[in-house]
Amino acid sequence: MRLGQRPAYQTFLLYLALVLVTLFFLLPLLWILRTSLITKAQAYQIPPNFHVQLTLENYIEVLTTNKFARYYLNSAIVSLSATVLSVVFGAMSSYWLSRQPGNMTGAKLAILATQMIPPIVLVIPINTLIRSVGLNDSWMALVLAYLTFNLPYVIWMLLGFYDNVPRELDEASAIDGCSTMQTFFKVVFPLIAPGMMATAVYSFLVSWNEFVFALVLSGNATRTIPVAIAALETQHGVKIAELCASTMLAILPIVILSSFIKKYLVNGLTFGSIK
């Protein structure tokens, strides 16, 4: 039965339920948005005052005095590098894995097994490692750390996409005169590009949101946004207005990326190559 054919009251109840569920998830976010747009004094008022003047002063303060722009840049550099590296290396190893004659169960399970280790267990060893090679307080330290848990995930995710590309296509292109590289770039890559995009976005989100490693491995110069936001919870109390403003700023790229990932995932992998 199509939506349009429901009796009116049913449609109404359905929408009501949807609105309630959406509000349940959105309210905290909306509250953060509100808090970020009012003055500090008003932000602390309890009970909250709803007749307030909207202002951008928190955003301006966060971006200027709190060096938030700098943290933004750090986060962007670290997340982008980790994403690019993990997708490039992941794409290659995953392609190789999916094109092996056997089913490579052992190797695949080994890759999956790395995802079963809680990342927090690795914080201390990786920290020691990074310090011993003198990389502490550098972007590279974070990029390497993120690679260790992004890469297996990226490989695993891409495997699914590669397995959807029939091997006959590789074989046909080999016969047509492609080298392995040409086969990959001219035939396989265009087909898994949407999948790769989705994987990249995912990898970016994970890196962008990462907190524990960033807290331990980053210094003043390399602090990333999640750490910077946490730092607004000071000994003298929570700087709630600034905190909300920086949270909104941190969310912004994710919102943009999420609309991307949707487009690519919906595009899907339905092609008419076989049969």
Binding site: C178, G272, S273, I274, K275
Partner: peptide, 19 residues
């Protein structure tokens, strides 16, 4: 390798490049 053999092949499931 196949590219050096100067052969062409037609596959059972066609294997056309979908893109």
């Amino acid at each position: 390798p196949p590219k050096g053999r100067d052969i062409a092949m037609v596959f059972q499931n066609y294997a056309l490049y979908p893109h």
